[in-house]
Design a protein around this nucleic acid. Structure first.
Length: 512
RNA sequence: GCGCCUUUAGCUCAAUGGUAGAGCAUCGGACUUUUAAUCCGCUGGUUCUGGGUUCGAGUCCCAGAGGGCGCACCA
C-alpha cells in the first residue's frame, strides 16, 4: 500500500534545517531522560480540571486577591514557551477545552524539575499540577508546583502565529490542522454535536436507529455509479451502497414503523466543493405519515438546530443572514419555474418541450426528460432560494420511488427543502404499490439499457417485499455534510470532513 | 475530462533572466509577571520532479506530479 516511510528512515530526505530542528528536540529528549523524566515511559495522568472550567470558575478572581489554595491537575500540549531569565518560564497549555497559561518558577518547582521543564519544547504534551492566580496583566494562570512530560514532540510544529495555511497539508495532515487552527477544531466539535443532536431529536420521537449493510449485491435507491468491490470467500462482486433507502423501507415492511440511519454513502463520482465520494446521509422513514407530516418534522428539526448554533432564528451563511423562522417559505415546483422563469407547466411536462427550454437557456441537451427538468430547475429556480424554502409537488418523472399525488398523476407527494441555494433535504410519500413500483423499475431498466449508467438495475426483491404490504409511509433524506456546512458557515465539504479524499501524495515513489 | 492559478527554509511569504531573502521557529546570550514577550547574535535551501533554451533559469519553453478555483459530471 501507499504509505509514507517512517520519518527516521527518511532522515536524509529532510532538508538540513528540518533535521537540525529534530536533532534539537532529540537532544532535549535525552536531557529529559537524564533528569529522570522519560516522556514515553508514562502510562497515565490524573486530570482533575480543564482550562475552560478554571477560566469560568475563577472569572471573578482579582489580580490582587489572595489566590485560592486548591490544587488542580491539567494535561495538554504546550503551544508557547516564554522564558524569563533562567528561573521563570511562562507557557500556554492547550487541552480539549481551551488554553490556560502556566507560570513555572524554579523556586516553586525545585531545581531538578525546573531543569526538566527547561528541556521541554513547543508541542510537547505535559501534565501539570498547581494553583491558580491572576497575573499582573490580568490573565488567569496556573502556578506550577509539579509537572511531568507525557509525550515529546520530535517533529517541529507549524508556525504558531501564521499557523498552517497550506490547504493540501491541512487535509493530508489533519492532526496538525487541529493542533494549530482552533476554528478547525471548533468546526469538528460542532459537527459532532450536530450529529448527536440529530440522533437525540429522532430518538426522542420514537425513531429507531438502524444499521443496514454498506456492502450490497446491488446498490439502488438513487441515481449514481457505485463503487465495486470483491468478496474473496464467496467470490462475488459487491457494490458499496449509494443510499440506505430500500433497506430502510424493508424495515418498515417488517413493522419497525419508525426507523432512521445516519450512514456513510459511497458514490463513484467527481470531487468538488460540495461532493466527496463518501459522505454521510440521514435517511428517516415514518409509517402512517404523509409528506406533510414529514415537512413539519423537517421544519422543526432545522429550526431546532439553528436555534442551537445560530443567532436565534437566524443563521449567518456566507455573509448573508438566513431566516429559519417557522413556517418556512413554500412554493410548488412548477409554480417556482413559472415565477422565476416564466415557464409553463404543460410545456415542461412534455419531453420535447423541456428539451426546447434547455436549448433556450443555453444548456447542453440532456439524455432524459428527468435530467432536463433537473437542469432547468437548477438554472432557473435555485438561485432564488436563499431563505429556507420547501419546494413541493415534484414531477413524477424525476421521482421513481414516490407516490403520485391524488388527483394529479403528473406530480408526486414530494418536496425538497432549499436554503442558501442548495438542496438541504428531500422527502416524499413513499410508493407502496408493488405494481406501480414494478412498472417504474421496468421503465428505469429501459433507460439503463439505453445507456444511462447511473440508473441502477431493478431491485426485484424490493418489489417482493412491497407485495407483503408496506403501510403508507413518508421518508426523508438529509445530506449531513451539507447540513453541517450550512450550520458551521463552511463553504467546502472538505472543511467539514476530517479526512477528505485526496490523491496519493506525489513524493511516495518507493514501492517496498 | 477541459481551462486558469499555484508549488521557494520547519511554518507564512518575498525575489526585471544576473550572488536565493524576510518574519516566526530553531541554536547561543541577557532578563523571576510574560502572553505574537522583548533585546543582542548565529544559523538554516534538491526553489515539486524530469527534460530543454541561454554565457547564466526560482524566473522562459516542454512533459509530468500535487493542490486550489471554474467548467463539465453529480437526485
Amino acid at each position: 500500500m501507499n504509505r509514507e516511510p517512517p520519518p527516521e528512515s527518511s532522515a536524509q530526505k529532510l532538508g538540513r534545517r528540518e533535521s537540525e530542528l529534530r536533532a534539537a528536540r532529540r537532544a532535549n529528549l535525552a536531557a529529559l531522560r537524564r533528569l529522570g523524566y522519560d516522556p514515553f515511559a508514562v502510562t497515565r495522568f490524573d486530570v482533575s480540571a480543564h482550562a475552560a472550567e478554571l477560566s469560568a470558575r475563577y472569572a471573578g478572581l482579582a489580580a490582587d486577591a489572595d489566590p485560592p489554595q486548591e490544587r488542580y491537575a491539567l494535561a495538554g500540549r504546550l503551544m508557547a514557551i516564554r522564558k524569563m531569565g533562567k528561573k521563570a518560564i511562562w507557557s500556554d497549555l492547550w487541552d480539549r477545552s481551551g488554553r490556560l497559561q502556566l507560570y513555572v518558577r524554579e523556586d516553586v518547582l525545585g531545581a531538578q524539575a525546573f531543569a526538566a521543564f527547561d528541556a521541554v519544547d513547543v508541542g510537547d504534551i505535559v501534565g501539570v499540577g498547581g494553583t491558580v492566580f491572576r497575573s499582573q496583566k490580568g490573565e488567569l494562570t496556573l502556578r506550577v508546583f509539579s509537572f511531568e512530560v507525557l509525550a515529546k514532540a520530535l517533529a517541529p510544529l507549524p508556525d504558531k502565529w501564521q499557523g498552517l495555511v497550506d490547504v493540501e497539508k491541512r487535509y493530508r495532515r489533519r492532526y496538525l490542522d487541529l493542533i494549530v487552527n482552533e476554528e478547525v477544531r471548533r468546526t469538528f466539535v460542532l459537527r459532532s454535536r450536530i450529529l448527536a443532536e440529530l440522533r437525540r431529536f429522532c430518538d426522542e420521537r420514537g425513531f429507531l436507529e438502524c444499521e443496514t449493510p454498506t456492502l450490497l449485491h446491488l446498490a439502488g435507491g438513487a441515481l449514481a455509479r457505485p463503487f465495486r468491490t470483491h468478496h474473496n470467500a464467496l467470490d462475488i462482486e459487491l457494490d458499496l451502497r449509494i443510499a440506505t433507502e430500500l433497506n430502510l423501507k424493508r424495515l418498515i415492511v417488517g413493522g419497525l414503523e419508525r426507523v432512521y440511519e445516519i450512514g456513510r454513502i459511497f458514490r463513484n463520482e467527481g470531487i468538488d466543493r460540495t461532493h466527496n465520494p463518501e459522505f454521510t446521509m440521514l435517511e428517516l422513514y415514518a409509517a402512517y405519515w404523509s409528506v406533510n407530516e414529514m415537512m413539519e418534522f423537517n421544519e422543526e428539526l432545522f429550526a431546532h438546530l439553528v436555534s442551537l448554533v445560530g443567532k436565534g432564528e437566524q443563521l449567518e451563511f456566507g455573509g448573508r443572514l438566513l431566516s429559519f423562522k417557522r413556517p418556512f417559505k413554500r412554493i410548488a415546483y412548477f409554480e417556482a419555474l413559472q415565477r422565476f422563469g416564466g415557464l409553463e407547466r404543460s410545456r415542461l411536462l412534455d419531453p420535447a418541450g423541456a428539451a426546447e427550454v434547455l436549448t433556450e437557456l443555453g444548456l447542453p441537451p440532456s439524455q432524459t426528460h428527468g435530467q432536463a427538468l433537473d437542469k432547468i430547475f437548477e438554472r432557473v429556480a435555485e438561485p432564488h432560494l436563499v431563505d429556507p424554502t420547501f419546494v413541493y409537488d415534484y414531477p413524477v418523472v424525476i421521482s421513481p420511488l414516490a407516490k403520485r399525488k391524488a388527483g394529479d398523476p403528473d406530480v408526486v407527494d414530494r418536496y425538497e427543502l432549499f436554503g442558501a441555494n442548495v438542496e438541504l433535504s428531500n422527502a416524499f410519500t413513499e410508493l407502496n404499490d408493488p405494481d406501480d413500483q414494478r412498472a417504474r423499475f421496468e421503465a428505469q431498466a429501459l433507460e439503463r439499457t439505453s445507456g444511462d449508467t447511473e440508473v441502477p438495475p431493478p431491485d426485484w426483491d424490493f418489489v417482493a417485499a412491497l407485495e407483503y404490504g408496506m403501510p403508507p409511509t413518508a421518508g426523508i433524506g438529509i445530506g449531513v455534510d451539507r447540513l453541517v456546512m450550512l450550520l458551521t458557515d463552511q463553504h467546502s465539504i472538505q472543511d467539514v470532513l476530517l479526512f477528505p479524499l485526496q490523491r496519493p501524495p506525489s513524493h511516495q515513489t518507493h514501492s517496498d
